[in-house]
Amino acid sequence: MRVVIASCSVDYEGRLTAHLPLARRLLMVKADGSVLVHSDGGSYKPLNWMAPPCTMAEVAPAEHEAAEGVTAVWVVQHSKSEDRLRVRLHEVEHDSQHDLGVDPGLVKDGVEAHLQALLAEHIHTLGEGYRLVRREHLTAIGPVDILAKDATGRSVAVEIKRRGEIDGVEQLTRYLELMNRDPHLAPVTGVFAAQVIKPQARTLAEDRGIRCVVLDYDALKGIDDVESRLF
Rank of each mutant, 00 (worst) to 15 (best):
F192I: 00
V214W: 06
M1L: 08
R181W: 10
L138Y: 12
Q200A: 14
D167M: 14
R25Y: 15
L176S: 12
W74F: 04
D145E: 01
N48L: 08
H184A: 13
S79Y: 10
K108P: 01
A157F: 08
T203R: 14
P52A: 01
V102T: 13
G153D: 00
V156G: 12
V169A: 03
L204Y: 09
D224G: 12
R174D: 15
G127K: 08
V158S: 07
A66L: 04
V10L: 04
H78R: 14
R24A: 09
L36N: 10
V3A: 12
I123W: 05
V87H: 07
I197Y: 06
V226R: 12
K221C: 12
G153T: 01
G209P: 06
P46I: 00
I166F: 15
P104R: 10
L89H: 02
D99M: 07
A120Q: 01
R25A: 00
M56E: 09
I5S: 05
P46N: 00
L20Y: 05
D145P: 00
H114S: 11
G164C: 04
D83L: 05
V29M: 12
L85T: 02
A120T: 04
E128N: 04
A60F: 07
T55P: 07
Q171E: 04
T71W: 09
L20E: 07
V3T: 10
V3K: 09
E91D: 15
E128S: 05
E112F: 11
L185S: 01
I197F: 07
I141P: 01
G127I: 02
I5M: 05
W49Q: 08
P53Y: 00
